[in-house]
Design a protein around this nucleic acid. Structure first.
Lengths: 211, 211
DNA sequence: AAATATTAATTAAACGTTTGTTTAATTCAA
DNA sequence: TTGAATTAAACAAACGTTTAATTAATATTT
């Protein structure tokens, strides 16, 4: 069984090590030598598999970006759910997605923050934009039905994602925020995930809902 | 008049060029040669003034970090303002501070995201922590007086800062968010600033206030 | 089934650049 | 004339990448 897709396994292993290193040292701050050493492969293997350091980075992004692709479209089209239920599901899935892959999302976050590789920057923003359109259409529908107040749909989206991103920004800051010791890991802790979900739902509910 | 503090002027000029470059290319992604060229000085001048690239970065951070230092303490102690008025002032000053220096705060943001220079990371988080304590004390006071609901003070802070950070993350994404063209600059536009302030105040009001 | 040929995976070494930093000489200002 | 400011050149180290040789695995032929 081990023999099946050895190359893919090794490629994926390199990608996973790269995510870990890029997330804490940045793309430019990580050398191929360091990456190869930590992954336990020869320096030349990275270029052998991916062609270049830049292409490794592209492969890293595309490897996981498809995740949750059609899910939002399904959710919007679903007619058996109310608008606020849809918003709740979005909050839950965003929290789940970001907290379960903190290193990967920190890499994406970096790429959004700097503008070194313009095409990749564009890829990420356009994906985010599509998600934004979906959320906006849900909020607009809620406003039309007068179950939602006349809020700012775009900035509401920014508040949901921004709150989670703020917590994901730095483990050290997150620990300060929730007053825990260094050994505590907020991103795997179930109770913290629940706390974040509850806060977001309550805040967004009181902002969106009439009465 | 020009002759007064030529060195400080030049140091500050280098710092300002560095902020611009670091914010779009990252610290590791910016070379001293590129920085010197853009600042119109010799390569050796950077080390002559700051000692090293790392120390330039430290100087860059400390140069502006003191800004708004005591203001929050004053605000908390002020007895002629209600809790919600204090929160509003905090929102206004955060929006103002972040939007008027987008490049600088993107550099800080990067340094929080990666953990290359541990001591600087620690400096930034501890400053943020002090601010957080202040906001928390205001919210706690509001809860005690029963003008605020029993909310999550820490995550409320995360929502305020996180919303602004989300908008500051990428100009391209911000433009998508607010559906404007490439030539529009959201960070200098007064109307956008007002829009962000209004959204934050309304959201936080409906979350915090009883009735 | 064994031997051979072919392709893929892996390696150590070297490549030319670029990096941050330093030197030693020169210009400028007090 | 003294000290600071500025320069061009050189430094070693680290960078991403390539090469050429070797080992391992797969396919083909006897």
């Amino acid at each position: 069984m081990k023999e099946i897709n050895i190359q893919s396994d090794k490629k994926e292993h390199i990608i996973n090590v790269a995510i870990e290193l890029f997330s804490t040292k940045g793309f430019e701050g990580t050398s191929i030598r360091e990456l190869a050493a930590k992954a336990g492969v020869n320096i030349a293997m990275v270029n052998y598999y991916f062609g270049s350091k830049d292409k490794l980075f592209e492969a890293l992004i595309e490897n996981k970006v498809a995740y949750m692709k059609g899910k939002l479209e399904e959710l919007v089209a679903n007619k058996s759910l109310s608008e606020i239920e849809k918003i709740d599901i979005i909050i839950e899935s965003y929290v789940d997605r970001l907290l379960s892959q903190p290193a990967y999302h920190r890499v994406i976050h970096q790429e959004l923050l700097v503008r070194q590789r313009e095409s990749m920057h564009h890829n990420i923003t356009s994906i985010f934009n599509r998600n934004m359109e979906m959320v906006k259409s849900i909020i607009d529908a809620g406003i039309k039905k007068k179950v939602f107040k006349k809020v700012d749909p775009e900035l509401t989206m920014a508040s949901i994602v921004g709150t989670i991103n703020q917590v994901m920004l730095s483990k050290a800051m997150c620990l300060m925020l929730i007053q825990k010791g260094e050994d505590f890991d907020p991103y795997t802790d179930k109770a913290f995930r629940k706390r974040l979900e509850t806060h977001l739902k309550q805040m967004i509910h009181s902002y969106l809902l009439n009465n």
